[in-house]
Amino acid sequence: MTLTLTVPPGAKVRVRITNENGETTEIEVEPGETVTITLPAGSTVRVEVEVVDPDGRKRTETFTLKP
């Protein structure tokens, strides 16, 4: 399973991925970048995406991906 994120110009994104064992991976994606994350097959993962807009506003979306 893959997750692809494209960050709009001016925004910053931090992604936290937590697996079933509670292990967390965190990455930051710079403005204008596209990143593809390969998620472990057969695992349920929690993905938290934090977006910081150019004006400093933050918003966070959290979702769970199941196999």
Rank of each mutant, 00 (worst) to 15 (best):
M1D: 03
M1A: 04
M1H: 07
M1Y: 13
T2C: 14
T2K: 08
T2P: 03
L3S: 02
L3I: 04
L3T: 03
L3C: 11
T4D: 04
T4E: 05
T4Q: 05
T4H: 10
T4C: 14
T4P: 05
L5Q: 02
L5E: 01
T6Y: 12
T6H: 10
T6E: 10
V7H: 09
V7E: 13
V7F: 15
V7N: 02
V7A: 01
P8G: 13
P8T: 13
P8F: 12
P8H: 13
P9I: 08
P9G: 07
P9R: 10
G10Q: 11
G10P: 07
G10W: 01
G10I: 04
A11H: 02
A11R: 01
A11F: 02
K12P: 02
K12I: 06
K12E: 14
K12W: 07
K12T: 11
K12L: 07
V13M: 06
V13W: 02
V13Y: 01
R14P: 02
R14W: 10
R14E: 08
R14G: 08
R14C: 08
V15W: 07
V15D: 00
V15R: 01
R16D: 03
I17P: 02
I17F: 14
I17G: 12
T18P: 08
T18A: 05
T18E: 10
N19H: 05
N19Q: 10
N19Y: 12
N19T: 11
N19S: 09
N19R: 11
E20L: 07
E20R: 08
E20Q: 06
E20M: 05
E20N: 05
E20F: 07
N21L: 06
N21R: 09
N21H: 08
N21V: 07
N21G: 09
N21Y: 09
G22L: 06
G22P: 07
G22H: 10
E23M: 07
E23N: 09
T24S: 05
T24I: 06
T24M: 07
T24V: 05
T24H: 08
T25M: 10
T25G: 06
T25K: 08
E26P: 13
E26S: 04
E26Y: 04
E26I: 03
I27S: 10
I27E: 10
I27A: 12
E28S: 08
E28D: 11
E28H: 07
E28F: 03
E28Y: 03
V29C: 09
V29N: 14
E30D: 07
E30A: 06
P31H: 06
P31E: 06
P31D: 11
P31A: 06
G32A: 13
G32D: 12
G32N: 11
G32K: 13
E33H: 10
E33I: 10
E33M: 08
E33P: 11
E33R: 08
E33T: 11
T34W: 14
T36G: 08
I37P: 03
I37T: 11
I37D: 05
I37M: 09
T38D: 07
T38Y: 08
T38C: 15
L39R: 06
P40K: 13
P40T: 14
P40N: 12
A41K: 10
A41P: 05
G42R: 14
G42C: 15
G42T: 14
S43D: 13
S43F: 12
S43H: 09
T44M: 10
T44N: 03
V45P: 02
V45F: 12
V45W: 14
V45A: 06
R46E: 05
V47N: 00
V47I: 06
V47R: 00
V47W: 01
E48R: 03
V49F: 03
V49G: 00
V49K: 01
V49P: 00
V49D: 00
E50N: 02
E50D: 04
E50R: 01
V51I: 11
V51E: 00
V51S: 03
V51Q: 02
V52N: 02
V52P: 00
V52I: 09
V52M: 05
D53Q: 03
D53P: 00
D53G: 12
P54R: 06
P54E: 07
D55N: 03
D55C: 15
G56M: 00
G56W: 00
G56R: 00
G56K: 00
R57P: 00
R57F: 04
R57H: 03
K58F: 02
K58S: 05
K58R: 06
R59W: 15
R59E: 01
T60D: 00
T60Q: 01
T60L: 05
T60C: 13
E61K: 05
E61T: 15
T62E: 06
T62V: 13
F63C: 15
T64Q: 03
T64M: 09
L65F: 15
L65G: 00
P67W: 15
P67F: 15
P67D: 08
P67Q: 10
P67V: 15
